[in-house]
Design a binder for these strands. Structure first.
Lengths: 359, 359
DNA sequence: ATTAGCACTCGAAAGAAAAGAGTGCTAGCA
DNA sequence: TGCTAGCACTCTTTTCTTTCGAGTGCTAAT
């Protein structure tokens, strides 16, 4: 059943004033905005309440939006908001700064998102499974060498190995060809005890060198699999009136500070067409989020990586502004991370791209 | 002026009950513990108040320790507490897990400290200035190579450079010797525009290769200088009754979440002989910490690195237990990071050491 | 020097009253 | 039929009082 135009205007006004003031909104205040008397508004509101879009905290308070009301607002009523010059400039500025590590980038992005939206924010990148493309061994001195591994996702890992005895150059070379023969192209779970044993036999290795390098390889793959997840600005929660109750605040903060919990519940729903997803109150799976809302945006991080950024806040969240900001940041990230896949000159962009892939 | 033995006993009891209950402690409750009547205790407490060791929130409440009282307690009265088997086991267990990156280690340590003490915790490592010891260039394919840099602090950094044109093996080799000649041994601020220019001239480089590698070098040194600082468990604050006021909690959480602020104020005082430092309430420099306390411990991170771990909490902090835990964790860290400098067999310890130095 | 007794203080908790915001309903008006 | 004005009613919030009790400080006795 379709809502009358005036009902829509009223619902929108209720949602937006409630978002702004955190107080139930009454008929009187709206009369001016809508252009009819408070009594009319009361009738309309009473119907909206019956339809489930509004709620009354108690008999004689104003109305607040129900989750369904927010949902309708988000889906149909709210206007796509544009960012101010200053805001886009701030975001662009932050994003063009070179970030050497994906980890650090996530950190920065989380902080940026949180400070732009005034809500706690998280940022994460999901990686595809990786394998090692090739090994290189650099001999530093008689008993020191560096192992360098190039992964299929084009990250490079390395490790300095310092031995209590000296090794010959040939030994290192042999080790290199052995590893390039046996350990390239294998994924995480394909490095088994027996693979290590057989390589050891082939190397005639009695000093445990193979074991050291193999454990390094496993570390590399494990690290490549782990999705860096950062939470920033958790304390922003405390400035929201709905979290003036320290117990509530504590519960939610615990939840969002624990990245793994957040992570396991959030990407459950695939992002929609436009890359934005809003989950309102009870729509959230996690019990802790039942009266909070989450807005998340996904971005293309290149190399088959898909990343997510999002914010967590009370259901009374400024969806319109948050959505605009997240979209803009996500788009910026996509540009930054995946935008230079086409061959490019040796300009800043290239350097950026490469440095981001660096570890 | 020295306190009588009984006064000490009373002060100790007041501090410890107040720490446990967060309620002002009255004479009646202490009578049992001390072994004399409440009236006597009242007289003594009244004197302790006059001396500045106790305070009265209002005329008819019990006494709470003043900062000076806590100070005396920390310096002279409190007993060195021993950790339980379970606690030491938990710490050891956490610490013996291999940590690949110093960043990640700080993360883990912060979380460990926070969960052991139930207060927000921070962990950081201060690094000495570093330079690059040597460069290696690994050619991957016609237009891709990897730069590997070994730093004086024995960390290894690398970067994959993908070019839109192909380079000859000789070019790479030349580049290598040039960088090894010009960019080794130089620190952060010694990489100047003119050094880059002159290297470019020497290389006859028109494609900006030198610039790319030079900026990589600068990034390495910058990263080596940055002290990783992690804050964990900030939400623990909210479980303390003194932070039930959301505004207070917010203010302090903002402060401690911002690592840089915390960092700039904390290490101002050099750690004392035993590596433990307690700053109580107004002793703190930062305005935000004026009614909180900070306990920090320093540890030897090897290679001239000195690290700090600490917790932040209300002045009513369980100093005794926190001090014991921090000491133990710091000692463990020292052992982990600096303990294997002596030549060691190819055992776990070696692997640990090497992997920790890995980047 | 210590203790018992007692009047006194002052915050916290409980209760009562007043204020105020908003609704729902009814009746009148275009 | 749809809108508006008016009014009684409801229910929270605020404020004010009262009561309660823990704890002190003092005095007098041991």
């Amino acid at each position: 059943m379709e809502l009358s135009d005036r009902k829509k205007r009223i619902l929108t006004a209720v949602v937006e004033t409630y978002i702004a003031t955190a107080e139930p909104v009454g008929s009187k205040g709206l009369a001016g905005q809508i252009g009819c008397s408070s009594a009319t508004i009361r009738n309309e509101m009473s119907e909206l309440t019956a339809m489930g879009y509004l709620e009354q905290p108690h008999t004689s308070a104003g109305r607040i939006p129900s989750p369904a009301g927010y949902r309708l607002y988000v889906n149909e009523l709210m206007e796509r908001q544009k960012l101010s010059e200053a805001e886009t400039a701030a975001i662009n500025d932050k994003l063009t700064k070179k970030q050497r590590q994906i980890d650090q980038l996530m950190n920065e992005v989380g902080q940026l998102t949180s400070s732009m939206t005034q809500y706690p924010a998280y940022a994460m990148a999901v990686k595809p499974p990786a394998a090692i493309k090739r090994f290189d061994f650099i001999s530093v001195d008689a008993n020191t060498f560096i192992v360098v591994a190039l992964l299929t996702d084009n990250t490079v890992k390395n490790k300095l190995v310092h031995l209590p005895f000296s090794v010959h150059q040939e030994q290192i070379t042999t080790l290199g060809s052995l590893f390039n023969a046996n350990f390239t192209g294998v994924t995480d779970d394909e490095i088994t005890e027996s693979l290590i044993r057989s390589t050891e036999r082939a190397a005639g290795d009695t000093y445990g060198l193979v074991a050291v390098v193999a454990s390094f390889a496993m570390e590399c793959l494990a690290a490549a699999k782990a999705a860096p997840m950062r939470v920033a600005g958790a304390s922003q929660l405390l400035s929201q009136p709905e979290f003036r109750d320290p117990d509530k605040a504590h519960a939610l903060m615990n939840f969002i500070s624990d990245g793994s919990r957040l992570m396991s519940d959030l990407p459950a729903v695939a992002p929609e067409s436009n890359g934005l997803r809003v989950t309102i109150g009870p729509e959230n799976l996690a019990e802790e989020l039942k009266d909070s809302s989450v807005v998340m945006a996904s971005y293309d991080a290149g190399d088959g990586m898909r990343g997510y950024i999002g914010v967590v806040g009370p259901t009374r969240m400024d969806y319109s502004s948050v959505a605009a900001k997240l979209s803009y940041i996500a788009a910026g990230l996509s540009r930054l991370l995946a935008g230079s896949d086409a061959p490019a000159g040796l300009d800043n962009k290239l350097v950026l791209k490469e440095s981001e892939r660096h570890e």
